[in-house]
Computed example of a mutant assay.
Amino acid sequence: MPLVVPQATTNDWEEKLLGKKIGDSHDNVTFAKQDLPEEHRIVKAGEMVTQDHKPERLNIHVDDNGTVHKVVHG
């Protein structure tokens, strides 16, 4: 029987990321970039993105200060 690893949901990622910045290491206000899923993109305020839908991709939206304010899959 194959090993099944549960996928983190968008809500799980929201709990980890909302209100934090993405950086090189973890602390009270920063989440380490290397701990994000392989399929992710960081979307800066006002930045244009492609509209291709990839359900496994985590889209992390940050404001002008680099603080995460929205997390969605797609």
Rank of each mutant, 00 (worst) to 15 (best):
72 V>K: 14
18 L>A: 03
71 V>D: 05
32 A>N: 05
33 K>G: 00
32 A>P: 04
53 H>S: 10
44 K>Q: 06
56 E>C: 04
34 Q>M: 13
70 K>Q: 15
53 H>G: 01
50 T>G: 15
49 V>Q: 15
54 K>A: 12
51 Q>Y: 12
28 N>M: 07
52 D>Q: 13
4 V>C: 05
58 L>F: 06
49 V>W: 14
41 R>L: 11
39 E>L: 02
39 E>G: 03
56 E>N: 07
55 P>E: 06
18 L>D: 00
72 V>T: 14
36 L>Q: 09
67 T>L: 13
70 K>Y: 08
15 E>N: 14
18 L>P: 08
32 A>Q: 02
61 H>W: 13
44 K>G: 01
62 V>D: 01
68 V>D: 07
69 H>F: 15
72 V>S: 11
1 M>Q: 04
37 P>T: 02
1 M>C: 06
35 D>A: 07
16 K>P: 01
41 R>Q: 07
73 H>I: 13
41 R>N: 02
63 D>L: 11
1 M>G: 14
58 L>I: 00
45 A>T: 04
41 R>V: 00
18 L>W: 05
3 L>W: 02
5 V>M: 07
19 G>F: 11
20 K>Q: 07
19 G>T: 04
48 M>H: 07
34 Q>R: 13
57 R>F: 01
27 D>I: 05
9 T>H: 03
37 P>F: 08
60 I>K: 10
5 V>F: 12
34 Q>K: 13
48 M>S: 13
16 K>F: 05
61 H>V: 10
27 D>W: 00
31 F>I: 10
43 V>C: 04
48 M>W: 12
35 D>L: 11
43 V>K: 03
41 R>G: 01
45 A>I: 02
9 T>F: 07
26 H>L: 09
37 P>D: 09
53 H>V: 14
40 H>Y: 10
37 P>N: 06
60 I>N: 13
22 I>K: 01
2 P>C: 06
12 D>E: 08
27 D>E: 09
74 G>R: 07
14 E>H: 02
47 E>H: 13
44 K>W: 01
1 M>V: 14
49 V>H: 06
8 A>I: 00
23 G>Q: 04
60 I>V: 11
66 G>C: 14
39 E>A: 10
44 K>Y: 06
33 K>A: 13
53 H>E: 10
23 G>P: 02
58 L>R: 03
14 E>K: 15
27 D>K: 09
25 S>N: 08
35 D>R: 11
46 G>R: 08
11 N>Q: 14
20 K>W: 00
47 E>A: 14
53 H>A: 09
29 V>Q: 12
29 V>K: 10
6 P>K: 03
45 A>E: 14
72 V>D: 14
16 K>Y: 08
13 W>N: 04
66 G>D: 12
74 G>H: 06
65 N>G: 12
57 R>T: 10
21 K>Q: 08
37 P>I: 05
13 W>Q: 03
5 V>E: 15
43 V>W: 09
57 R>P: 02
17 L>H: 07
74 G>S: 10
28 N>K: 06
50 T>S: 15
39 E>N: 06
60 I>S: 06
59 N>P: 03
73 H>Y: 15
34 Q>F: 09
23 G>I: 02
15 E>Q: 13
16 K>H: 09
9 T>D: 01
44 K>P: 00
25 S>C: 01
42 I>W: 00
